[in-house]
Amino acid sequence: MTPRTTDADELAEQPRIPLSRRRVLRAAVRLADRDGIDSLTMRQLAQELGVEAMSLYHHVANKEAVLDGVAEVVLGEVMVAVDEVEAPSPDADWRAALRARILAAREVFLGHRWAPQVLESRTTTNPLVIAYYDRVVAILRAGGFSFELAHRALHVLGSRALGFTQELFRPDGTGTPDEEAAALMEQMADRFPNIVGMLADAVHDDPDGTLGFCDDQFEFEFALDLILDGLERRRAAGS
């Protein structure tokens, strides 16, 4: 009589997928997306992969190497996204071309809200960041920008060119709870009536704003359009 094979036996017989640097980094990104960047420790990463922590060191030297790697993974996703986006030719409409690519990059970062914090913490610039900005300059040049004005444009855009701004974009994805926001506004009302009035108006117009007081996507696109329009005026004026 042939012994009955159980599910556990079948799982035990299946070959384990070997670890690789790519597999480790993908697991690290998945862990950070689910539990936040502070959860990304070598022990937690090993548990995510179902392996011993020591086995990770064959593929990543330490946590800093993991952080370098997850930044690389996210930036790789950005490069794919901007390559695939539908946009006009830069020489036909540089503003629309650049805007579409910036918003495509932003979509990637919105899926990995911890990533700006990681990029900011790196001591060296990832080559993919340089490649991304090189493409931004290529768009500007195709649109008629001099190198001097393109240089100034990069300074004005800053991290916004990559799709996020540190002053509005919350890397941990958290917003201000409604109760906390209301209490804060009440405390500030006497000292800062204009700010409180502005925030109250914003809450009234957009009660579901993603940062508690405002819709960060709307504000991001509003500021981006102001910058692009201003740069176009400078370009057209030849300065």
Results as ranks from 00 to 15, higher is better:
185 M>L: 14
212 G>S: 00
199 L>K: 10
168 L>T: 10
174 T>V: 11
200 A>Y: 10
165 T>D: 11
178 D>N: 06
196 V>L: 08
215 D>G: 03
166 Q>H: 13
156 V>W: 05
186 E>M: 12
195 I>Y: 07
195 I>P: 02
214 C>D: 11
201 D>G: 12
158 G>Y: 06
169 F>K: 03
151 H>G: 04
209 G>I: 04
159 S>Q: 02
157 L>P: 01
172 D>F: 01
184 L>M: 14
150 A>D: 01
218 F>R: 15
215 D>W: 08
190 D>V: 09
167 E>C: 01
186 E>R: 15
221 E>Y: 09
199 L>V: 13
219 E>W: 15
201 D>M: 12
189 A>N: 04
208 D>Y: 12
196 V>K: 05
164 F>Y: 07
195 I>K: 05
203 V>R: 12
173 G>R: 00
199 L>H: 09
219 E>H: 14
153 A>C: 03
184 L>T: 12
157 L>Q: 06
198 M>A: 10
192 F>P: 04
159 S>R: 06
196 V>E: 01
187 Q>T: 00
193 P>I: 08
178 D>G: 09
198 M>E: 12
193 P>M: 03
200 A>C: 11
154 L>I: 07
158 G>K: 06
198 M>Q: 14
168 L>V: 12
175 G>E: 07
188 M>G: 11
169 F>M: 00
217 Q>L: 15
185 M>I: 06
193 P>T: 01
189 A>T: 03
188 M>E: 10
190 D>Y: 06
216 D>K: 11
187 Q>P: 01
154 L>K: 07
213 F>T: 04
156 V>G: 02
212 G>F: 03
201 D>N: 13
202 A>D: 12
161 A>C: 00
166 Q>D: 10
216 D>V: 12
200 A>E: 10
185 M>C: 12
206 D>V: 14
209 G>L: 07
203 V>M: 03
157 L>W: 04
158 G>D: 06
185 M>A: 11
184 L>C: 07
213 F>G: 00
159 S>D: 08
221 E>N: 14
173 G>N: 07
154 L>Q: 04
194 N>A: 07
178 D>E: 13
172 D>S: 11
207 P>I: 07
215 D>Q: 11
214 C>I: 15
164 F>M: 03
158 G>M: 00
221 E>H: 07
218 F>E: 15
163 G>M: 03
187 Q>L: 10
194 N>H: 08
152 R>F: 09
187 Q>G: 08
216 D>W: 11
160 R>N: 05
206 D>M: 15
176 T>D: 00
179 E>F: 14
201 D>P: 01
197 G>K: 10
221 E>K: 12
149 L>C: 09
189 A>V: 04
208 D>W: 13
152 R>G: 09
